[in-house]
Design a protein around this nucleic acid. Structure first.
Lengths: 225, 225
DNA sequence: TAAAAACTGAAGAAAAACTGAATTAAACTT
DNA sequence: AAGTTTAATTCAGTTTTTCTTCAGTTTTTA
């Protein structure tokens, strides 16, 4: 995991860095708000360990920043203050846990694991439609418990269809989704036809359900009705 | 710490006892299986240093005993150089590390500290995936009871794959994990290909299982399916 | 039933992945 | 510190996989 440690006490900071790095985490650290924001702006971390009392401001600002940017780093607040107010404030702004100094590094580690588990458990990794199960993490597709192997375009297509199940998807919209808007295809949908054909074949190899319907003149509709 | 030394070579046993006692450890020692079991039944230790070849049986029996009783003593196996199988077997049964004779007492001490740290952090010292056993402290990898020697990058890669088994790992993510974010590789994945090739070869030299799958256009997936 | 749209299989083009060997860099030795 | 060994990276050529194009066919609808 990629962890950012924001802590101004040098000794503690270095201890955390060393200790967590031993666990195959990639750790970075800094001692103030400004550097932390710079680092966060430049990179996506998994975890932020955040001291509240920093030389150039309160760690809460980082929580606000992360919230505003809709980032999903997990945050554990580390604070010398055990005041209930701080705790509530931090958790309200979006921290995942709160640790009061002094603490054992082993406990920090345990908290990190716990928070990470919780995060992972709460995010739904499967997209299900009838007998079709798409595992987003494994990037696998199972139909009737049989895995079907899809190319990138086919996979993206299926995902898009299932995310919009029951809706009519215009070929232009599909093209835009798969290739971005830089693709000019003036009247030529041959490549869509081609990928649709291949996707259909792979689906029909393992089910009799004809999910992928054509809508003449417009596009496609993914439905079981 | 309370340490039990199980070793039948008198000289080595006494050396360990003396050396480790200097560090404020409370040490006891014995030379055979039966005495060891008696001692363990009567007292809770922190550490067991375990020779495998004992006059009245194999040290493995102690590992089984500890496992059955759900004890949580940390165990470091001390084995003779030629018994490679013993080492792997030990790690599988639940030893936390192993040490090959002859060794420096300083190294033994270092291993004890390392094992203890990780135990305190409530983490397992071995990562096991099917016939693959990784000992995180010794940084060693065994597949089908054969040790495979990996370079740093290969080891880090394998660890990352196994920690994320079943998930698709994007090449970009892999690069970030191995080199941090300071690495800019705009379109050039040559070094990844290179390391992947070498890692694959080493794995396939000792197993027929093709664990490391390519996911065209994205990256890799480590899986046994 | 004619025109437009959609489909198909196959082939060519392009992209991505792989490989062995050469080069460069890093890590040990003495 | 120089030399040796080992590992990491780069490179150029090859193979594999996917994407796109094309020409001919079928389906749809007006």
């Amino acid at each position: 995991m990629k962890i950012l440690i924001v802590e101004d006490e040098q000794g503690l900071r270095e201890n955390m860095l060393t200790y967590l790095s031993e666990d195959n985490n990639i750790c970075e650290s800094c001692a103030d708000l400004a550097t932390a924001i710079t680092k966060l702006a430049g990179y996506q971390y998994d975890f932020v360990l955040l001291d509240i009392g920093l030389p150039d401001g309160e760690g809460f600002e980082i929580l606000h920043y992360l919230k505003k940017e809709m980032r999903n780093e997990a945050v554990i607040i580390i604070s010398a203050r055990n005041s209930l107010d701080d705790r509530i404030k931090g958790l309200n702004i979006g921290a995942d846990d709160y640790l009061v100094k002094p603490f054992h590094l082993a406990e920090l580690k345990a908290r990190i694991v716990a928070v990470f588990r919780r995060k992972a458990a709460n995010s739904n990794n499967n997209l299900v439609f009838n007998e079709i199960v798409i595992n987003l993490i494994g990037r696998t597709v199972f139909i009737n418990d049989v895995e079907i192997l899809l190319t990138r375009k086919e996979y993206d297509m299926l995902l898009y269809f299932i995310a919009n199940k029951g809706k009519v998807i215009a070929k232009t919209a599909l093209a835009e989704h798969l290739w971005g808007d830089e693709m000019d295809m003036h009247d030529n949908f041959d490549f869509i036809y081609s990928h649709i054909k291949n996707l259909r074949k792979k689906i029909l190899d393992v089910t009799t359900n004809d999910y992928l319907k054509s809508v003449y003149g417009i596009g496609y509709k993914f439905t079981d009705k």
